[in-house]
């Protein structure tokens, strides 16, 4: 993927006016298109907006607002800028290792396992989890609901094709994560990429879901939402945590990114730490 250097506000731009314009733009997008970015973390949101402004050959946020509201293709491009997050297979290998050791034994006790991978982006971590469950003999009684706000990334996820040049890095991650086979068993070189075995996703449902505006759609044994909420402000994080709380039964598992914490959230006391370092929690009230 090309290196993304996100631009900052032009030097002469008034900070106060910038905030007003951004709030108006986000309000307009929400009311016209239904996408709600009003509670996204400001510093990175602002940079993504300026990247789109530059790419469209514009020079103000109001100019982008005019174009976005009257030209849906511009909105689609902005949606890609705002919602795509970068991920990789077995990102944070220690998390997968901990999941194998501490969560898998709990899952073995269930006849059927329902997993929600919220904010799955292009799917690398969905395939990682499917591989892990396959190796633990749990994949055929599991169903993974992999959701994202962005339909374009879900299409990529469904193809199961990932860049071949990443396979060396992913193989190392896989081994560090406690993988027990040869990683190359899972893919074949095809279409100028690595095509992952379709059997991995036989029990995966890819679907569009917006964490900001949509409700819970089922109950799950495990919810994975890693490095997604870091793009949200704290009030929105709390709302999403409420959604997850309502979607988990007692003793359900919640896993967030290794540099996220329930410590700054409203639901802190509702969970116990199963693995404090890898941020794996279990609902206890």
């Amino acid at each position: 993927m090309a290196e993304m250097v996100l631009p900052n506000t032009p030097a002469k731009y008034s900070k106060d006016l910038e905030r007003v314009e951004i709030e108006l733009l986000l309000e307009g997008i929400f009311r016209h298109y239904g996408f709600d970015f009003r509670s996204y973390a400001y510093a990175s949101l602002k940079r993504r907006l300026w990247k789109r402004i530059e790419a469209e050959g514009l020079d103000t946020i109001s100019g982008l607002q005019q174009k976005v509201l009257h030209d849906p293709p511009t909105m689609e491009r902005l949606l890609m800028d705002l919602s795509v997050s970068v991920t990789s297979m077995f990102r944070d290998p220690n998390f997968y290792k901990a999941f194998r050791v501490q969560v898998v034994p709990l899952l073995r006790t269930y006849p059927f396992i329902r997993i929600w991978h919220a904010g799955c982006s292009t799917g690398e971590e969905v395939y990682s989890m499917a591989i892990l469950l396959e190796e633990e003999g749990l994949l055929d009684r599991a169903r993974i609901y992999a959701t994202d706000i962005n339909e374009a990334v879900l299409r990529t996820a469904k193809t199961g094709i990932f860049p071949l040049e990443k396979m060396q890095e992913y193989t190392q991650n896989y081994l560090k994560a406690g993988g027990v086979r040869s990683f190359s068993e899972y893919y074949t070189a095809a279409y100028e990429g690595a095509l992952f075995s379709p059997t991995l996703t036989e029990n995966v449902v890819f679907a569009q879901h917006n964490l900001v505006t949509d409700r819970s759609f089922s109950e799950f044994n495990v919810i994975l939402c890693r490095n997604v909420m870091i793009y949200f402000d704290r009030p929105l994080q709390n709302r999403v945590h409420q959604l997850f709380y309502e979607s988990l039964p007692m003793y359900g598992i919640l896993a967030v990114g290794s540099k996220e914490s329930l410590r700054f959230s409203d639901v802190e006391t509702c969970y116990e730490e199963l693995n404090a370092k890898e941020k794996i929690y279990r609902k206890v009230m």
């Binding site: 993927m1 090309a2 290196e3 993304m4 250097v5 996100l6 973390a41 400001y42 510093a43 990175s44 997050s85 970068v86 991920t87 490095n227 870091i230 793009y231 704290r234 990114g257 540099k259 996220e260």
Partner: peptide, 13 residues
Amino acid sequence: ERGYFSLSVDDPI
């Protein structure tokens, strides 16, 4: 941010 930190996993710069 004013008063707190946010993290991101955007591409390396």
